[in-house]
Write a protein that binds this DNA or RNA. Sequence first.
DNA 1: TTGTATGCGTTATCAA
DNA 2: TTGATAACGCATACAA
Lengths: 381, 381
Amino acid sequence: MGKTYNINDIALMAGVAKSTVSRYLNGGYVSEKTRLQIENIIRTTGFSPNQTAQNLKSKQRKVVGVVIPRIDSYAVSRTLMGLDDALNAVNMQMLVINCSQSIDREIEALDNLSKQKLAGIVWLASAISKRHHKIINQLESANIPILLLGQTHPTLPYIAYPDFDGAFSLGQYCKSLGHKEIAYLGVEEKDLAVGLNRWLGFKKSFDEADISLTRYFCSFSLQDAYELTKKIINAQSNYTLLLCATDNIALGAYKALSEAKIRIPNDISLTGFGGYDFTQMLHPSLTTIELPFYEAGQIAAFKLRYILLSQDKTIGQTTNKQENDPYLQLKKTFTNSAAALYLSSAEKENISHGCQLDSHQLCTTFTLKKRQSVDISDKKK
Amino acid sequence: MGKTYNINDIALMAGVAKSTVSRYLNGGYVSEKTRLQIENIIRTTGFSPNQTAQNLKSKQRKVVGVVIPRIDSYAVSRTLMGLDDALNAVNMQMLVINCSQSIDREIEALDNLSKQKLAGIVWLASAISKRHHKIINQLESANIPILLLGQTHPTLPYIAYPDFDGAFSLGQYCKSLGHKEIAYLGVEEKDLAVGLNRWLGFKKSFDEADISLTRYFCSFSLQDAYELTKKIINAQSNYTLLLCATDNIALGAYKALSEAKIRIPNDISLTGFGGYDFTQMLHPSLTTIELPFYEAGQIAAFKLRYILLSQDKTIGQTTNKQENDPYLQLKKTFTNSAAALYLSSAEKENISHGCQLDSHQLCTTFTLKKRQSVDISDKKK
DNA sequence: TTGTATGCGTTATCAA
DNA sequence: TTGATAACGCATACAA
């Protein structure tokens, strides 16, 4: 049923030329009489202009491609929400491409997107390889701006999280609790943000002779962290603190510890990174660093729009270099899965029952202007 | 930088007609010699055909619009994953529109999508009002098929979850545990699937004189459920079981109970509905019904493709009626946030420490063919 | 095997 | 104020 009308049909039925209909649609000169005629026909037919043809003609780009590593992640969905809300406000749409952690699919997605006439691309990148750079060039030559979210880059515009500083400040906090035997559950360094910077931040915190920091590697998967933690438990080490590179990893550790009847934080302390909201549902809730995923999404949308606008002005000369380092607010929420070693056992008992100690409940914000960098020496211990 | 080439440029540079280039691109007749020439030019220029123009020409629809109520939901993201994986396999893409629980944005989104030449629309609907139906007609007259996911409909094709049966079977299980004073935390009935069917399923289970079932209403938000539960706690009622319409609601209740130092399941039992994976991280983990969100997404993609294919054959006569009721596998995972009333306190203690009792660990699957329906009488108690 | 001409549904230019 | 006509970038029937 329901033939789909085009502007020609409408023109014919209204007894005018199609250019007149077009003018009507785009708010140009139309006499009252013809305006009513056209209006009438459009209402009865339910006609609406073909956006594909409009795009072909006007080269207006209203869709931004969003490349994400996975979709079932708190960080990703919060980011998408921020992006979507901000994009929606300026009448733009998201084309979300999920890559399921596969670098092949990521390359394929980027390649594919480069063939579509998009307003721009926001790429929630985890690692950028040489293979990626070929596609990046392709996108640049297709004049479609690309914005990195969550990673830094020497030439591309980006928005990054204060991974180093967050880790450093959480590390300082843990140090203040008196921990000396610490295990770190992190991810590979090729992920600069999560794998490298967080590690460096923690490392700097504990860079003292009398603190032992041992580093373990796992993937982003909860399951993987769970398995790793079981191994660590079985190895009978005497860690008092498990530092995790992400909340998800901490969740896996949490599960393994609980199953082994190792009490948190009575027997061992545990921290995460990210601020996934349901980690606050646990008892005790997870000590973590809260990252502004939603805001990052919003900022990405604004920044992309800014790039687009400035491109329109200085047409021809795209300026991709990072002009002003974007800074993100970092909210540190230290709750109670990490306990001080000098607490009385009564106090500890209290914590494990979900009671919150004021001394562990600090919440400050600070602003990051410049990313710090630290050279990597060999692993401690 | 980087001028963007079109097929004409390539033809000129290769010294052939643009139709030849087009033929090359689409696998038609080309001599070895010209093939090499064109290939060469394309490589050096990095040319790739404009998909907008291709679409305008060939009317091939490769994008399906996905309308979702929210993005930060486990159910939604699992569904999107299933959709994406299945769509990806047949070279199609998703255009995700998030409506942030706003009915206005939902209407707007559907309206907007009807103007784009999409392959189809998958709508994760929560409630379908009269206002929606106007848009649905609009979509039908634009010849773009729409598939409902998570709700039923008299004329539109849909995929629904076994809400009634799931609730009924969870109810049976709870009844077997001996509970007599039960509170139900549900959502509005205008949401047929979650609000009505789950309620009816539970209601049928407890349809006996000696069981008291009290119904409370809240939104889908964890925070809302948290507040409501606090009120229930303050009202000093003597419920032994809190039935929640969703896992998210159960999470809110879980938080309120924990904060009030009411032990689960020692002091009160708690159940959810949905099977969000992190509910299994809690101690005790949540008793719930696991819904196949991922699979539903996959099936939606298959079904949409089937509709598209059959449309192509019997062109002109779209068949929108529900031919074969799609059925979904339901996995019931009863774990340990709901305890039997006859357990010894030692056993209960065991449960609250995260130990799993075999008797509470049943896991069966069954297949739903026909949705059951039950008339609504007045609320019990 | 290749090139010419035409159309897809719009918008924009320019003359009437 | 209106209408013919030429793009936009590509695909294809048909002629060469």
